[in-house]
Design a protein around this nucleic acid. Sequence first.
DNA 1: CGAAGTTCTGAGGCACCTCTCAAAACGGGG
DNA 2: CCCCGTTTTGAGAGGTGCCTCAGAACTTCG
Lengths: 247, 247
Amino acid sequence: MNTTRSGRPALTRPDGTPLRVLVVDDDPDLAEVLTGALRYEGWQVRAAADGAAALAAARELTPDAVVLDVMLPDMDGFTVLRRLHETQPEVCVLFLTARDAVEDRIAGITAGGDDYVTKPFSLEEVVARLRGLLRRAGMARRPEEEDPGLVVGDLVMDEDAREVTRAGELIELSPTEFELLRFLMRNPRRVLSKAQILDRVWSYDFGGRAHVVELYISYLRKKIDAGREPMIHTVRGAGYVLKPVTT
Amino acid sequence: MNTTRSGRPALTRPDGTPLRVLVVDDDPDLAEVLTGALRYEGWQVRAAADGAAALAAARELTPDAVVLDVMLPDMDGFTVLRRLHETQPEVCVLFLTARDAVEDRIAGITAGGDDYVTKPFSLEEVVARLRGLLRRAGMARRPEEEDPGLVVGDLVMDEDAREVTRAGELIELSPTEFELLRFLMRNPRRVLSKAQILDRVWSYDFGGRAHVVELYISYLRKKIDAGREPMIHTVRGAGYVLKPVTT
DNA sequence: CGAAGTTCTGAGGCACCTCTCAAAACGGGG
DNA sequence: CCCCGTTTTGAGAGGTGCCTCAGAACTTCG
């Protein structure tokens, strides 16, 4: 079976072959990190540095989704989108955009089913948005059973509703807490180093130290483990693990 | 069958041929030690002293993994990474870096599935990280059956969860204890000298005496053999062995 | 514009980990 | 049975990792 590099079963196309994604960004470092992260999901990834290259690559690859920077050296991201849809109307597009840039034009996009994230973003966010897009477009399916959502023990996360419950009890989380927990829940019973967590959950341009991770772990513990059998465990010198209580 | 020099079945590529690893470091002594340790794992190893040589060797060898020093005489380790991924997107990279240089430039590395170890490191750590990388990338498989983890008698180690159980009972270990036990479990029924243990489990720059090994063996015994049939045995004048109880 | 919530920094402190020293226990050879 | 080298154990110093708290900077929303 097709799997992610973390060993978890990958999200695939309906026929079981790996999802195909095209990354379009003119910043080589960012493109490198993005393609790496998406490959890590078990997907087939290709990169392009400008609009012309993107359209050429898209004709060749026929991707299921495109991660598309709005600002490209040769042409506007929206032009690329329009041209893409001419030949491949089914393709999903995830825009990458600066925070203060053209919110109005983006707003029209999301109506068409596409989505966007603002720079600087975290990799978990990009991956989550992409998975959401593909799932809603019916272009992806989880292998085997029906989508059970994210479940670890009695801890349940509904990504669409952005709701988390433990033992049926609703838990309110801030945005960062939510993303951290999602990352932990996508990798249960695996020790995750602070560096790994920082790289995936925090924005790529975050300069701070790993101390923040400890802080947010402590926030999560207060909300999730408070007065209960703990699910978040510290592994000294290695990182943190999320485990169901009944090991 | 392809085997390690210790007689244990080697981790191989999916087609059964030996894994191919490229070691890139400008310190000849360190490169020598590393290539030796990786060859000992039954892998096909080649060394390069700078970035240019590394890229050339990679084109020729098409390695499954690259052990890459961040500081190279001719070019940045990250440039090497990007160039490598251009031609061989599937390759895994394990970075070697100084402890205080970590935070700034390593950022983003673990997101793509790659990993790093800080100098000074132990050989067991490098090997373990590499095995983890290759296993998760689906690029390596254990010969014959599915990955059972590390099992000796009723002693079981889950490397991902960093968990050790004996007869189902969870045993808490410090980082050094864990690495020592991993080394013993990877070489069961084999007498390991204190010098061997020191060379593999402790960092290469460790100046202390072999007395630490005795000390840590005693710690392990207290946790693993406590009140049970002993698995760790002393072979006077030779070293230590880990054996299942029913010999 | 003000209030509430969120994110991050820095300092303090506790607990654990690692290693050294010293002495006791063990085991084999005479 | 005793001696001597080897191994084990105990106590403790020093360092490090991790957690908590308090508050400052920033954002969001009314």
